[in-house]
Design a protein around this nucleic acid. Structure first.
Length: 829
DNA sequence: AATCCGGTTCTTTTT
DNA sequence: GAACCGGATT
């Protein structure tokens, strides 16, 4: 039904104002923003401005309401108002504010909007950009990760499903520890049942919203499943005894809460008029259910994603959520964003050429008006050193050509590939930073301090309690703890409770004082945490626990690094206090446990960034190297059996390629030392999928006859950093034993390599002659290339040493001992 | 409890 | 090659 003539005129003008406001968007983006009502699927290609769309949509909702096509003027609108709007539309910027206000029709209150992301980084970006756009109102929008949103929901009502509100969050490491306990208690042989497999089975069950009770139904007479079930049951029992949730539980329990308590569910369904989900292709089943539940009231659900960028299948993400969105919501509007604002056309052509080989996809073709750009560069290296040197040279050339180091990124399929690049960077003096798999918050000393904080927060967290009770050493041994554990089971109270009352149990008499001292300390710390500001409290804690004291007493580099990390944690606390209105210990711990390394990655530092292709998702760099582009590495051997796994690898490749803005380099090596073996491999199929016309090929092609096999001619090097085994490294009548790798010794004679099981070598019967790896000053040595020489100096470096040798024929050479040991032996100590 | 030593394993991992 | 684990040894 249309309104009066006034209404029609007004609404036309109103639309013009809105159009003007969002005129910087392209037509597809605009239509995605303005079609706010009902279910909507935005298929957003890499670099197509999907975050912008998400943010602008929220801006639109807050500023103008959701009725773009509304044909009624606000009730009290006057002709004067209309004139103001016209003034703004004809270019009078001073009328802007007023005009915008006059165009508001039922603006959506910010607290009715939830935007869910996967990473903290994305959530943070949304929050920041929103507060720039709409100011204070942004604070009331739930722009959060899946996990933090769920924790927020749980914090309010988790008591209804049998946990207490001060619950603890267990990370992967804690999970592993609990599982180890389960294995022990259930007498499960870790040889027969891989813990990782069982852990992931439990995780998968949780992702699929299957609790132990449901799981039991699926077991039948499947023995393996029945083992999983046993572990699953005990694992959950242990978690709930510690009042702890693991990452999967955070989602799982939220869904459980919403499902079991319709009143709570309804509350959120009424609250969230608009639900927006980022990276929808990476959601798993539980997350899908969660978003559906939250959006169940108004059905205003907008999901943004790219099926071509789904790279977390192994974590339970199911691409079906995006592929089936239109089935779940038959009235869904689908919008494709294919214009790319990041890369050159050349880069997009290359990426499109690769991804089009995937069958199971919705289909998109990226284009750009950024200009053609330059061809993708392919470098064929002889080995990984050559590859790393090429990367270094290219960066150095670029640096002298006014690029900054921070404009370069090196991406690889897995972490091991970073080693050779890293050492080349060191050699060439190129600053770099590795976004590593090891998180800051995973470092032992940081975890120790966090464990203290967790225990102070939640005394029943026995897992963390055990971590710290004797760290620094307090003369509380395993035996004592075991007794306490048994008592806790018998009395059905927490271990902490037992310790606190140690004087009541004669079994604990020997360690009584230590135990009581410890519990007193924790309780005192708890009290302090109530009224001291967090950072002061933390400093106090460092003192009380004696942790800093312990480190100060050790005078080595390691302790100094640990100390630094402990104080870095303090700067995290201060940072948290500055950001949050009401900082609490609980709040800090929550945030920290949902944090990862990439959240700490400083974009402003001028250093080459190295990370896995997975970590690079969502980032962009002017110049990108993808190294290790070889069959067997990328795609990895493990993905080669199933076509769907290859497709996932191809998507990873697509994600990685589309990180590049200007220059894309693909490098591969004919020969690569990996896992202690030399591997010969062919170029990755993904490179072959790019038309030759858009690739510049450099380097030397590998001799084809070597392809596809492991090296059989070489030797295995000494395990660097590991001390030489006096009894196992020797020369025998079989040839020279060249160290052990993988439980085997290798020995070569001519071009034949023998592989001997270390445990089968009878060292007694073999003539022993040590190959010395640790050289000393004054020794005479014989080098295969340089001949005889004498050691002038030895400088320890890391696990290796730099030796300076004066050779009789060739003069002084400086060699790394670990490397030189292959060619040099001691002839006279 | 700390270190040695032999053996095992080795993708990716937003939270 | 390197990290890591667990049992044995000090």
């Amino acid at each position: 039904m249309t309104g009066t003539e006034f209404d029609v005129k007004y609404s036309v003008l109103r639309r013009e104002v809105i159009d003007k406001e969002f005129s910087f968007l392209n037509p597809m983006q605009k239509s995605a923003v303005l079609n706010a009502k009902g279910p909507q699927l935005i298929l957003a290609g890499a670099g197509s401005g999907k975050t912008t769309v998400l943010i602008q949509k929220i801006v639109y909702l807050i500023k103008f309401g959701d009725a773009y096509f509304c044909e009624t003027a606000p009730k009290d609108a006057t002709d004067d108002d209309m004139r103001t709007i016209v003034r703004f539309l004809s270019g009078d910027e001073s009328a802007k504010k007023e005009a915008e206000r006059l165009c508001e029709v039922d603006p959506v209150p910010p607290w009715q909007i939830i935007a869910i992301t996967f990473t903290n980084k994305a959530a943070k970006e949304i929050k920041e950009r929103l507060s720039k756009a709409v100011g204070e109102k942004a604070e009331d929008i739930w722009a959060q990760t899946f996990h933090s949103a769920c924790v927020r929901i749980l914090r309010r009502d988790i008591e209804k499903i049998g946990y207490s509100r001060d619950f603890t969050i267990y990370d992967e490491d804690d999970k592993k520890k609990v599982l180890t306990e389960c294995f022990k208690e259930l007498n499960i042989d870790p040889q027969r049942f891989e813990m990782r497999a069982i852990s992931s089975a439990i995780g998968k069950a949780k992702d699929a919203l299957i609790d132990p009770f449901e799981y039991e139904k699926t077991c039948g007479d499947d023995f393996y499943k029945s083992v999983i079930l046993k572990v699953y049951k005990l694992y959950q029992k242990k978690l709930s005894a510690a009042n702890a949730l693991d990452f999967d539980d955070i989602i799982f329990k939220t869904v459980e809460l919403l499902k079991q308590h319709p009143d709570i569910c309804e509350y959120y369904q009424q609250k969230f008029k608009y639900v927006l989900v980022d990276e929808y292709q990476d959601t798993n089943y539980a997350q899908y259910v969660l978003t559906s539940l939250l959006a169940g009231g108004y059905r205003n659900i907008c999901v943004v994603g790219d099926d071509d960028q789904s790279i977390y299948k192994f974590r339970g993400a199911t691409i079906r959520n995006i592929l089936d969105f239109e089935k779940t919501y038959p009235d869904a509007k689908t919008i494709r964003l294919e214009q790319n604002y990041r890369s050159t056309q050349m880069i997009l052509d290359a990426a499109n050429a690769v991804i089009k080989n995937n069958v199971g996809r919705k289909g998109k073709t990226l284009w750009t008006d950024n200009g053609e750009g330059v061809k993708t560069v392919r470098y064929q290296a002889e080995n990984q050193e050559d590859e790393a040197q090429f990367i270094s040279n290219t960066i150095l050339k670029g640096y002298s050509n006014s690029w900054k180091f921070g404009d370069f990124a090196v991406l690889y399929r897995n972490h091991v590939l970073s080693n050779s690049v890293e050492s080349a960077f060191k050699r060439n003096g190129i600053p770099y930073r590795i976004v590593s798999g090891v998180r800051f918050f995973d470092r032992a000393e940081v975890k120790d301090m966090l464990a203290y904080l967790w225990v102070i927060q939640n005394h029943t967290d026995t897992l963390r309690l055990r971590r710290i009770i004797n760290n620094p050493p307090r003369k509380i041994g395993d035996r004592t703890l075991e007794t306490a554990q048994q008592l806790s089971e018998r009395e059905n109270v927490s271990v902490f409770e037992i310790i606190r009352n140690a004087d009541k149990y004669p079994e604990l008499s020997r360690a009584r004082d230590q135990l009581v001292n410890f519990s007193d300390m924790i309780e005192k710390a708890s009290e302090l945490s109530e009224f001291l500001p967090l950072d002061e409290f933390y400093s106090e804690l460092l003192d009380m626990t004696g942790y800093v004291n312990m480190l100060e007493n050790k005078d080595d580099v390691e302790s100094a690094v640990k100390m630094e990390n402990i104080f870095e944690l303090k700067s995290n606390i201060i940072d948290y206090m500055n950001r949050v209105e009401e900082p609490t210990l609980q709040g800090f711990l929550e945030e920290v446990s949902l944090f990862t390394d990439i959240d700490r990655y400083d974009e402003n530092a001028d250093a080459v960034v190295m990370m896995t292709m997975h970590s690079a998702k969502g980032l962009e760099f002017p110049n990108v190297f993808l190294c290790g582009m070889e069959e067997g590495i990328f795609p990895s051997f493990m993905s080669m059996e199933k076509e769907e796994d290859i497709e996932e690898e191809r998507r990873i490749c697509y994600v990685a390629m589309t990180r590049a803005k200007k220059n894309l380099y693909l490098t591969h090596a004919a020969r690569r030392m990996i896992y202690g073996r030399t591997m010969f491999s062919t170029v990755s199929r993904f490179i072959s999928e790019i038309p030759e016309e858009i690739v510049d090929t450099l380097g030397t092609p590998a001799p084809p006859e070597q392809y596809g096999r492991y090296a059989g001619t070489g030797y295995v090097n000494f395990n660097a950093g590991r001390k030489l085994h006096k009894d196992t490294d020797f020369e025998s009548d079989l040839g020279t034993m060249r160290g052990n790798g993988g439980g085997y010794h290798y020995t070569s004679r001519g071009n034949v390599t023998l592989k001997l099981k270390t445990s089968l070598i009878d060292t007694e019967k073999t003539e022993k002659k040590h190959i010395k790896c640790d050289y000393e000053v004054g020794m005479s040595v014989l080098h295969t290339a340089f001949g005889k020489g004498r050691i002038k100096a030895v400088t320890r470096m890391g696990g290796d040493a730099l030796v300076e040798v004066e050779f009789e024929q060739t003069g002084v050479k400086r060699l790394m001992a670990g490397f030189a040991a292959r060619y040099m032996k001691i002839i006279d100590a």
